[in-house]
Design a protein around this nucleic acid. Sequence first.
DNA 1: GCGGATTTGTGCGTATGTATA
DNA 2: CTATACATACGCACAAATCCG
Lengths: 242, 242
Amino acid sequence: MTETRSGYAAWRLIAEELRVDVTDGRIPVGGRLPTEAELAERFSVNRHTVRRAVAALAAEGLVTARRGSGTFVASHALLTHRIGTRTRLTESLGSRSGDVAGRLLGTAVEAPPPDVAAALQLRGSDALRLEAVRTVSGRPVSRGTHWLDLDRAPDLGKHFRRTGSITSSLRASGIEDYVRVSTTIGARHATADELADLELSPGAVVLVSRALGALPGGEPLLYGLTRFPAHLVELDVDHRQF
Amino acid sequence: MTETRSGYAAWRLIAEELRVDVTDGRIPVGGRLPTEAELAERFSVNRHTVRRAVAALAAEGLVTARRGSGTFVASHALLTHRIGTRTRLTESLGSRSGDVAGRLLGTAVEAPPPDVAAALQLRGSDALRLEAVRTVSGRPVSRGTHWLDLDRAPDLGKHFRRTGSITSSLRASGIEDYVRVSTTIGARHATADELADLELSPGAVVLVSRALGALPGGEPLLYGLTRFPAHLVELDVDHRQF
DNA sequence: GCGGATTTGTGCGTATGTATA
DNA sequence: CTATACATACGCACAAATCCG
């Protein structure tokens, strides 16, 4: 058998058929796919072959497999995260009102990696590192790592723990305004840690945004590395100036 | 055996070790990995287990497997594509001088999909669609689909075929200037077609940019959908105004 | 709370197809 | 044409997480 007629592997054909079942709504969001055993029977193939098909869909973020439980259709509504000069590096994901929440995973005071130190124009001094996850309706939508110059923002960790917002914490530290001066966007597969923090399936894709914020005068203030699940979030670049 | 000590699957540990071999340069760019049979022997596992580890690295774009030939370390130098108000939607990838070339895959005059028609504010009229691939040093770095309002840009296809640049073709059509008014960036796994056009391995990640260009007055002019191989290209957002 | 049944995850061995050198 | 090397597929077995009576 192998490589069936028409040159397409069996698992690709199965993935296509399952994809249509999902995208056409025959299996609703949150609904469960048939078990691997059932699918193997339905398509008259080995369970391994079904697993490869399902793995492909899981990698796209279309479905999520849970050991012991089943494989479920993932929500695939797109959130839009706006990126502009005045958009805070961390603040709320736009649209879809929903309950937005920030959760601080941890903080540390340490020497940042060389590229971060360079961006912040630090010379050997330590920086405050914040690790945070943002959720919308309980769903993780971003995983951020932020570095701040300690000299410019004392007690910021304490404020953040209370407010969950870097911007308001900065305000409490006497910094009223800052602007985003550069943003670099890439994408890759999520690491094991990111899979856990963002509750993703293996093979999931993350958008990676590296941004530098500075005071209106130009002095670098904070550097942020944010990962977004690509099947949930898209980034909207705001080209207007104001 | 299965699920080895320490809770990590064997194939993950093998992928980690191979990744280090590659990133530390023990296997240079362009170099060939040991065959699956050799790796299976080295790690004392079945060939299938090795294959899963290698597949994970291929999905990241770190290596490329070629049937009948071997598995090779992919180049992973990053190109930077700048996105700003005045950056052309199609023009050259920055940095790395190299020989940049555009290749026109085809053109068509047809009704654009609804979202494109809406962005261009067309009402039922057809648009010119351009399909193009851009290469740097022979390597595909972007795959673009562009729609233009026919009324505003006659003969553009003919000009593009000669020059390989949309901007200069527009100039030849009497349009001297346009600006990018919005850009939306997402990421996902490449489709089968994109894998072929961009010469990628299955599982590769593409950055997807959807951009709208307009005349200085504000009339929509062209809409572009560009896919970049995420392991080769990152997007740099230019927040300055000028 | 316990224990068995269910369901996905990992791994081995084997066989064969397909593309390349 | 032949050997090599990756690709697909089957069958078996067991582990780990979850579910349910």
